[in-house]
Write a protein that binds this DNA or RNA. Structure first.
Lengths: 184, 184
DNA sequence: TATCCTAGAGAACGCTCGTTCTCCGAGGCA
DNA sequence: TGCCTCGGAGAACGAGCGTTCTCTAGGATA
């Protein structure tokens, strides 16, 4: 594996699990087994490493979601199924983007930007999922985004065994919102 | 004003606006005008100050919400109206509890605990709001909690002028969820 | 074999952190 | 007036931060 890749893998795990500011560059060096000199050749600053972490997390998170959802007959239900699985994973600790924004958003334009881009990508994906099926796909995409981020936040602070509850409640809400109109 | 109160007021503002780890005790001292010695007499450690910040934020946030909502004919709509106002306030930066949890939750049992208590209080309040009006108040309270936390997260990362959109979308979703059954 | 270049290990640097300690001056009391 | 206590200002401390620098060992080349 390339040095940059090893650094990024180690950093991503540490940043997500413990928070960005709680992790020093020396810990990234130790976890990746890459010398500090080379680490700074790959990523010239901690902020650059953080941005790379978020960008890669965006790619992987989105492609895991879309890989699970695409082709399903009820894609909205699949989204919340996928969420429920994610919430149950070892080391789940909420939305890495929201956490990074809360921690660093006040200081770093670059972090704000990459978080915003991720949410925009997710919103666009949801929009595509419901376009044609509902009368106002923009509104419904926004609602689904709210449900996803809300379920993630609630699952984060809930005790482990209750995390799935948030996903299921959000899934039922999503079903109600996207259901075809019942009026004649 | 008492020393402890001045410290807490200054710390709350700084912690919320910039994040906990970004603010040093010396900055709290400077902003509060209280000497470091006295500051440590009031709060024996930074963690104690953070917990006090979250506890007071819980009290004030909840009482602002309940003060706005209680007595309204449509309390659920009022909740999301209140959210929309909050999102528009200067210095709004998402949920202080979720942000603190993301930043410190991995390190501090006390922070995890106080955040969990706040969400539990909010869930209980929402439960009371919908009890009697819906068939499954536990589920609906959970859904409203998800919508509130989701709207808050989306509003945080959205550009200023778009923050209200999240509140309105969540409010419409809440209305759909809590509406009396339309079937005959 | 002698010389150069590279790269890794980790020491060093300047800074900031949370926390403690020292100093000094003001005010109460005999 | 002389003494004593209190509290404020901020220096000090040890640790850890992000980042840079030095030193050394090894391999490639002539």
């Amino acid at each position: 594996m390339e040095h940059a890749e090893r650094v990024l893998t180690a950093a991503a795990d540490l940043f997500y699990r413990r928070g960005v500011r709680a992790v020093g560059m020396d810990e990234v060096r130790a976890a990746s087994g890459v010398s500090l000199k080379r680490l700074y050749q790959c990523y010239p600053s901690k902020e650059a490493l953080v941005v790379a972490y978020l960008e890669r997390r965006d790619e992987r998170w989105m492609s895991s979601l879309t890989g699970y959802v695409d082709g399903r007959t009820d894609p909205i239900a699949a989204v919340f199924e996928w969420l429920e699985r994610w919430f149950g994973e070892d080391g789940f600790r909420g939305c890495g983007f929201v956490n990074a924004y809360g921690e660093l958003g006040a200081d770093s334009d670059a972090v704000r930007e990459v978080v915003r881009r991720h949410k925009e990508r997710l919103r666009a994906y949801l929009h595509g999922l419901v376009a044609g099926a509902v009368t106002d796909p923009g509104l419904v995409a926004e609602q689904l985004l709210v449900l996803i981020d809300g379920a993630t936040a609630v699952a984060m602070v809930s005790p482990r065994e209750a995390a799935a509850t948030a996903a299921r409640a959000a899934g039922l809400a999503a079903a109600a919102i996207t259901a075809p109109d019942e009026s004649p």
